[in-house]
Nucleic acid binder design. Structure first.
Lengths: 357, 357
DNA sequence: CTGAAAGCGCTTACAG
DNA sequence: CTGAAAGCGCTTACAG
């Protein structure tokens, strides 16, 4: 920006900068000590003479010096970068964003910063992201797995990269895992509807290749079996990936010969689709509904929406704690932590079956 | 993990790793060429002999070599790290998370990765985060400003760090800014209620020190003035920071002598509080309501929630585009881009004032 | 306790 | 077109 900037004709972007960051060498010159002493002082080495440390502190303040962590990482014996990488389905998805925050809260306490990226549930994008993180020397990775084979991480795990998988287990690699109790939550939701007197309970599920979706279907089935209620395949609709499909499936279920008196929606978007269908039919006060995953405004609905809520922030915090334990040198066998879900009754799950059906 | 790991007694974490990542030097040895040639081949330098390039490619594949971007950054003339830093109020906040995704989508196209962090609307945390990002040599920063003085960034801007502020303008620094048309959106919301016949329109606003909140109040005032409706201070409640406070303020407004026939809620959480209050009074079909910012399930409410929606993903994409334009060397004066909002009518904003009031 | 020197993994003038 | 050498900003044995 200054007229003299063209006196630095180095790289293509060489003239982007009109200033420079001060280096440790310059701090040493100003403080009148050696580079080694500056490094030690900045790293709070207790062996540094207090007077020299003060001189360094002054020089740092005067120059506005800030350490270059990338250079530090390159030279340190442990090669730690104080950075981690996070792979989500989508950073904008509320569940994943809350997970993100849980991880951040724990990382912040250790001065660790997080790269974040979205796989869009594509295994190849997951791997690309992971490789991009590793190229930037992250100390560890928290991954919501999209792909089904994580063998590509074996070499890096053996090189010391800490690894934690969240929400779904990884494939072909042994690593720490943090999960919600999907089956237990689905069991609780279904049992809740059974207690209200429902016997014909529809199930709307996501793609079964997704671990959590398969687990939730299992929970639904187990709860019915526990009460001796036979599973009617006509009441089960799977592979629903968005709200529109879920709404259509709901309409189909309710238009059948012997329709369900209640519906369990196996996921956020599915719940939204089910609500839309129920409202379109004016049936929201007649058909019971429990959804998996909580939603904003759930208690402002009419009736309020009963859900099974996951502790997304808790999943994130737990994942980060496992990750840092590994970085701290914990060497035991890998662990799988399962966090409980919570049923929140708000009205839609407490509707009783219509008498004259 | 191997029994021999204690033969590396270097750092505290020195025995964490049982393997090592291959270096460029090892690739050179395997390929039988010099380090320089490997570097050139990996950087797709067209001057490298195709035969040698092929040898390098093979060695890279055989060793599973991946470049260390931090070392690259240290040595490159332009010092670019292909990383940027993002500061949000809260990565878990839906508006910010969507902003995040918009930025990611543009950055991904350039092979750039993003660090993300939450300021919790605390200026000091914002600055700490920014400094932590800069210590990791980010090329640029996208900041939703929490603090009011960003002079601390002047030196870094002059050193070539690209800077874009989103959602609110920065203080004491000249930089590119991307904003929603908060005043215009609020004007449209208020005008929409005026058209429905409302003359007594309550306003529920956030803390006025927040730029967007002040702008929204301005839009409300201007719309009333344009129709010759005097502003009644008794109908305006400001400094509402959460849903509970907003609900209480709504109750107060509606319990007054000459209550409003409609309410404009100046923000997400405020809207949720207003809905809760209206429902608690059974007034949701009588009192008009428009909220600023869209919400999940808004169309599943009864009545559907009319809102003024921001284009959060568009704000993010625009911010990233401005950032990369600067990194590409664009040197012109700083720009402020204002993105329009959209009014989405769903029912609550189209209720007419009760006749006998 | 302090400093001079080596070197982390790369890129890039500089010769050839 | 290729290689040997210097050096980015740091940390860390090694002497003193």
């Amino acid at each position: 920006m200054t007229p003299f900037s063209e006196t630095f004709p180095s790289g293509a972007n060489g003239d982007r900068a009109s200033g420079r960051r001060p280096t440790m060498r310059e701090v040493a010159a100003v403080a009148g000590v050696s580079l080694s002493t500056v490094s030690r002082a900045i790293n709070d080495d207790p062996k540094v003479d207090p007077d020299l440390a003060a001189k360094v502190r002054d020089a740092v303040a005067m120059l506005g010096y800030r350490r270059d962590v990338t250079a530090t990482t390159l030279r340190r014996a442990d090669r730690l970068s104080a950075s981690i990488g996070l792979v989500f389905d989508d950073v904008a998805n509320p569940f994943h964003a809350t997970l993100h925050r849980g991880i951040e809260d724990v990382a912040r306490g250790r001065g660790v910063l997080a790269f974040a990226g979205s796989s869009d549930e594509d295994g190849e994008r997951e791997r690309d992201l992971v490789h991009a993180f590793l190229a930037r020397r992250v100390d560890g990775l928290v991954i919501v797995p999209a792909g089904s084979d994580h063998g590509y991480l074996l070499r890096d795990r053996d090189a010391g990269v800490a690894l934690v998988f969240v929400d779904r287990p990884p494939g072909f690699i042994d690593a720490d895992v943090v999960l919600s109790d999907h089956a237990g939550g689905a069991r609780a939701a279904t049992a809740h509807l059974l207690v209200a007197g429902h016997r014909r309970i529809g199930y709307l599920g996501d793609r079964q290749r997704i671990h959590s979706a398969a687990e939730r279907l299992r929970g639904y089935s187990e709860a019915l079996a526990a009460e001796g209620v036979a599973i009617d395949p006509a009441l089960v609709r799977l592979e629903l990936a968005d709200s529109a499909t879920a709404a259509a499936a709901t309409h189909e279920l309710l238009s059948g010969d012997d329709p369900p008196t209640a519906v369990f929606a196996g996921q956020n978007l599915i719940t939204i689709g089910a609500i839309a269908a129920l409202r379109a039919r004016g049936a929201q006060h007649d058909v019971g509904l429990v959804g998996f995953d909580d939603v904003t405004l759930a208690d402002a609905m009419d009736p309020g929406l009963t859900v099974v809520a996951q502790d997304a922030a808790g999943l994130g915090r737990t994942a980060a704690e496992l990750l840092f334990a590994r970085l701290d040198g914990e060497a035991g066998p890998t662990r799988t932590v399962v966090l409980p879900t919570t049923l929140i009754a708000r009205g839609s799950g407490e509707l009783c079956p219509a008498v004259a059906r």
